[in-house]
Write a protein that binds this DNA or RNA. Structure first.
Lengths: 338, 338
DNA sequence: TGCTGGCACTCGTACGCACCGAGTGCCAGT
DNA sequence: ACTGGCACTCGGTGCGTACGAGTGCCAGCA
C-alpha cells in the first residue's frame, strides 16, 4: 500500500503534468507544492511509484509522467468531480434552451460539450428501444406506397418508405393507423414487437400482406444495430493534443469516423454513473492514448442514451467529469420538457 | 499569351507536383514528360511562368510549385473532368442503394465521397424551400400541445413542438390538417407562405389563435438560416494534407466545424455546373490553402442542395471533379426514386 | 527508520560547422 | 529559338561538442 505522501506526490505529478504537458521532476514538484519534504525524498517516492507502475520516465534524465495506471489511481482515489461554476451552469441552460427540435438539441449539446471541455464531444441520439412511443403515423404517398413515421417521447423522429404488395385503401390505412397507435402509444419501443404481433390476423386477407410489410418495416427500424445514431464535434480540439499530435491525430480521427467504434465505446460505459476509460483501457487501438469520459442521460431516471468526450489521457479529469455530468443533466431536463 | 509548350510545361508541373508533393525541377520534368526540349529550355519557360505568377519557388535552388493562379489556369484550360471507371460507378450505385432514409442517404454519400476522393466531404441536406411538400402532419400530444411534422418529396422530415394559446379539439385539428394539406401538398415550400396566408380567417375565433401559431411555426421552419443542415465526413483525410499538415489542419478543422462557414462555402458555388474554388479564392481565411469542389444535386433538373469536397490545393482536380459529379448524379437519382 | 544534502552520471537537446547536391540563371554557341 | 556548360545558391544532413535537467545512490543525521 502506498503511503499518504506518495499518493500526494502522484497527485502533484498528475496535476503538474496535465498543466504543463512536460515531464515533471522532483525539484519542480517541491517548489510548486507544499509537500514538506526535500527533492531527494520525493525522488525516493517517485522511484517507488515507478516500480509500482504508476509513473514512468520517457527517458533517463527526464522527469516522470503518469502512466495509464497512474491516471486510473488518480481518478479513482485522488480526484473528485469538479462542479461547474454557476455562470457556466447558466450558460449551459441558456444555450440548450434555444433548441427547436431533437437534432438541434443534440447539435447544441455537442458544441457545448466540446467548448466546455475543449475536447472532442460525442453525443448519442436517444435510443429508440429505450424510449416510449409518442405516435406512429402512416401516410399514403401513392396507391401502393406508404410512409411510416415513428415519433418518440424524446422527440426523435424516424421515417421509412414502404412498398406495399397490394394497393391499400384509405379506410384500411386509417384503421391500421388507429389500431397501431392504440396498442403502442405510451409503451416502450422495446415492447412494440410483442404488442403488434397478431395485428395482421385481424385484417382482411387482401390487406394482410401490406399490414405485415408495415409491421416488419417497423420492427426493422428498431433493430439495435441500425437505430443508433450519434453526432460528434469539437474535432479541432484534437490539435491541442500535445506536441506529438501529428502522430496521434490520425488514428483518433479515423476511429471517430467509424460510428460503430464510437457506439461500442459509449456502449461500454456503465449505464448509470460516470465511466472513465483511460488509454489502453479502450478496446480500440487508435484510442490507446486517449481517455473517454462518458455518462448516460435521459429524460427520467433511466438513461436513454449516452454522451461523453474523447481527449488525451493527459486531461483535466475533475473538470471534464464535472462538465460531462452537468451537460448530461441539463440535456435530460430539456428532453423531459419537450 | 502563353505558348502551347509553356502551357504544357505548366500542366506537367501541376501533375508532377500533385503526384509527388515536392517542388519539381526542370530536369525531372524533361525526364518524366515528352516535352521534346532540353531542361534549359524548360527553365526559360519556367522563368516566364513564374513572372506571370503561375508558379513559384519555395526558396532559391528548389523546384517550382504551382500557385493558386497556376491551378486556376490548369483547371480552366488544361484539365478535363475525369470520368469514373465503370466498377467505380457500380460501387457507387450499390453503396447508395442500400439507404433506408434521408439521413442514411446523406450519411452514405458523405462516406462515399470521402472515400472516392480521399478528401473531406461535405453534403448539404436538400433545402426545404427548394423542395415540394409531400405531407404536413399535425399531432395532438396534449390538449394544448401539438407537433408539426413536415415531409418533403426528397424524404426530409422536420418536426416542431407547438404550445397552443388555447386547447384545440380533435375535429378542429383534423380540419386544419386537411385544409393545410389540400393547399400545400405538391407545391414548393417556397410558395407555402403565400398559400396559407388567409387560412386563419376561415376558422372560428376561438381556434384562430392556435391556427396562427401553427402557421407561424411552419413559416419559421422555412427560414433559410435555420433550415439548412449538412453533414461532413472524411476528416481523417486531412492527415494526408502534406508535410505541413500540422500547421494547416487546425484552421481547416475549425472552419469545418462552423456550419455557417460551410454553408456559405457551398452557397458560393454556382447553382448548376461544377464550381472549383482554389486557395485564396475562398473567402474564409482558414481555407486559404484548400480548394473546394462543389456541385448542386437534385431529384430533377433543379438543384435542391449542394455537395462537394474540401482538400489541399494540391489535389487531383480532374479525378476529384469526376467523383463529385458522379456522386451528385447518383444521389439525385436516389432522391428521385424515393 | 526515515529524511536530507551532496555528487557523479546519463542522456536528450541545442548549436555550430562542413559537406552535398538539386536546381537555378546566365551566356556563348549552333 | 534552342542547347550545353558552368558558376552559384541554399536547404538538408550528419557529426561533434557543450549544456543542463534530472536521476540514483550514499553517507550522515534526527
Amino acid at each position: 500500500m502506498l503511503s499518504e505522501r506518495r499518493l500526494e506526490v502522484l497527485r502533484a505529478i498528475v496535476q503538474d503534468y496535465v498543466g504543463t504537458e512536460e515531464p515533471v521532476g522532483s525539484k519542480a514538484l517541491t517548489e510548486r507544492h507544499q509537500l514538506g519534504v526535500s527533492p531527494a525524498t520525493v525522488r525516493n517516492d517517485m522511484a517507488v511509484l515507478e516500480d509500482e507502475g504508476f509513473i514512468a520516465q520517457p527517458h533517463t534524465s527526464a522527469g516522470r509522467i503518469p502512466t495509464d495506471k497512474g491516471y486510473r489511481l488518480f481518478v479513482d482515489k485522488l480526484a473528485g468531480v469538479k462542479p461547474l461554476s454557476s455562470p457556466e451552469r447558466r450558460a449551459i441552460q441558456n444555450f440548450l434552451d434555444g433548441a427547436v427540435d431533437l437534432d438541434d438539441v443534440v447539435g447544441r449539446t455537442v458544441r457545448l460539450l466540446a467548448q466546455l471541455t475543449r475536447q472532442v464531444a460525442v453525443v448519442q441520439y436517444p435510443s429508440l428501444t429505450r424510449s416510449t412511443v409518442r405516435h406512429v403515423e402512416l401516410l399514403s404517398l401513392a396507391p401502393a406506397r406508404l410512409m411510416l413515421v415513428l415519433i418518440t417521447d424524446t422527440g426523435r423522429v424516424e421515417q421509412r418508405m414502404i412498398d406495399c404488395p397490394a394497393p391499400f385503401g384509405e379506410t384500411s390505412l386509417a384503421d391500421l393507423r388507429a389500431r397501431l397507435n392504440s396498442r403502442v402509444v405510451g409503451r416502450r419501443f422495446a415492447d412494440v414487437p410483442r404488442l403488434v404481433q397478431e395485428l395482421p390476423e385481424s385484417f382482411d386477407s387482401e390487406d394482410r400482406g401490406t399490414v405485415s410489410t408495415v409491421l416488419s418495416t417497423l420492427l426493422e427500424t428498431l433493430v439495435e444495430e441500425t437505430e443508433e445514431r450519434l453526432m460528434i464535434g469539437g474535432t479541432s480540439n484534437l490539435t491541442r493534443f500535445g506536441h506529438d499530435f501529428p502522430v496521434m491525430i490520425r488514428p483518433v480521427l479515423e476511429a471517430l469516423e467509424e460510428q460503430v467504434v464510437l457506439l461500442k465505446l459509449l456502449g461500454e460505459a456503465t449505464d448509470s454513473g460516470m465511466t472513465v476509460r483511460i488509454g489502453h483501457e479502450n478496446a480500440h487501438e487508435g484510442l490507446n492514448s486517449t481517455s473517454v469520459v462518458a455518462v448516460g442521460y435521459g429524460s427520467g431516471d433511466e438513461a436513454v442514451a449516452k454522451l461523453g468526450v474523447v481527449g488525451p489521457t493527459r486531461m483535466d479529469y475533475p473538470g471534464t467529469m464535472g462538465a460531462v455530468r452537468a451537460v448530461a443533466r441539463y440535456v435530460g431536463q430539456i428532453l423531459a420538457e419537450s
